[in-house]
């Protein structure tokens, strides 16, 4: 695994040096984009809008349009924005997990301690477990202010990005009915249904993405069947066969004449 960020958790007077790893991976089939004719791979190019020529990554900078020109920003500039936050996950609050609605949950990451941070890391993890609380912190990831929670999960401290309040929409406009009363009998029936479908121990791994499996079946069948790219030249029409014989005969006499 590649660390995507490194810094420290700032927790009171203690700094816990950590690295951040992505906790998720793509699980869909890897399909390539191809040219319909000849099946060459498609690749993207970054094109200079003026010259139409390709620009290498090394020559690409970021800029902000300001007045009539662009102000170009470098890595150093981004680091200057909030030098503290770009290297530090600042813990501000501790809350109960259920106080944060799942709507706010965004991408999860794993935190691992780096050299010298192991003890403090375990201390924070155990303290969180025992208190039944999660930490709320702020840091800068990829030039973006990020809000997150830190949550113990078995051996690891999970860092889950959460959304800022202004990113969540209201559902007011949806016209969800408010003053409908439900009958106790119906409610009872619903309860018993829920109970029936509640397993003793739930395991999410029983849910599988079968779409990819099904697609793979189609791909295999297609690969076995007729080849789409390379046409077969085996079946030669009698007409071209005759013609080839005729041609060979004429070429033969040609060489014989030359030889004599």
């Amino acid at each position: 695994m590649h660390a995507i960020w490194s810094g420290a958790i700032g927790f009171g007077l203690v700094n816990i040096p950590v690295k951040l790893y992505s906790a998720t991976q793509e699980s869909s089939l890897d399909l390539d984009m191809l040219d319909k004719n000849g099946h060459a791979n498609i690749h993207y190019a970054r094109i200079n809008a003026k010259t139409g020529k390709e620009v290498p990554w090394a020559n690409i900078v970021k800029g902000y349009k300001y007045n009539d020109g662009y102000v170009v920003l470098t890595d150093a500039d981004f680091e200057k924005v909030s030098p503290q936050k770009s290297k530090m996950i600042d813990i501000n609050d501790f809350v109960k997990a259920e106080e944060i609605n799942t709507t706010f949950y965004d991408t999860p990451y794993y935190l691992s301690p780096t050299k010298g941070g192991e003890r403090a890391y375990v201390l924070l993890r155990e303290a969180l477990k025992q208190s039944g609380k999660i930490a709320i912190g702020q840091f800068v990831l990829r030039n973006k202010e990020s809000l997150c929670i830190l949550k113990p999960q078995d051996d690891v401290i999970l860092l889950q990005k959460i959304r800022f309040a202004e990113e969540i929409r209201s559902y007011e406009d949806l016209g969800i009915p408010k003053n409908i009363t439900v009958k106790p009998a119906e409610l009872k029936m619903a309860h018993s249904l829920i109970n029936q479908l509640t397993p003793k121990k739930f395991s999410i791994s029983k849910y599988k993405d079968t779409y990819d499996e099904d697609l793979m079946k189609i791909i295999k069948a297609k690969a076995k069947g007729k080849k789409i790219t390379a046409p077969k030249f085996k079946i030669i029409h009698n007409k071209s066969k005759d013609l080839m014989e005729q041609l060979k005969a004429s070429l033969d006499t040609g060489t014989r004449k030359k030889a004599s």
Binding site: H237, S240, L247, G254
Partner: peptide, 21 residues
């Protein structure tokens, strides 16, 4: 190296095979 007739016949062969594809 080849006559027009031979050139035409070879071209014809390729043309037939292409049309079959």
């Amino acid at each position: 190296k080849y006559t027009y007739e031979q050139a035409k016949n070879f071209a014809n062969t390729i043309a037939i095979m292409t049309q079959e594809q």
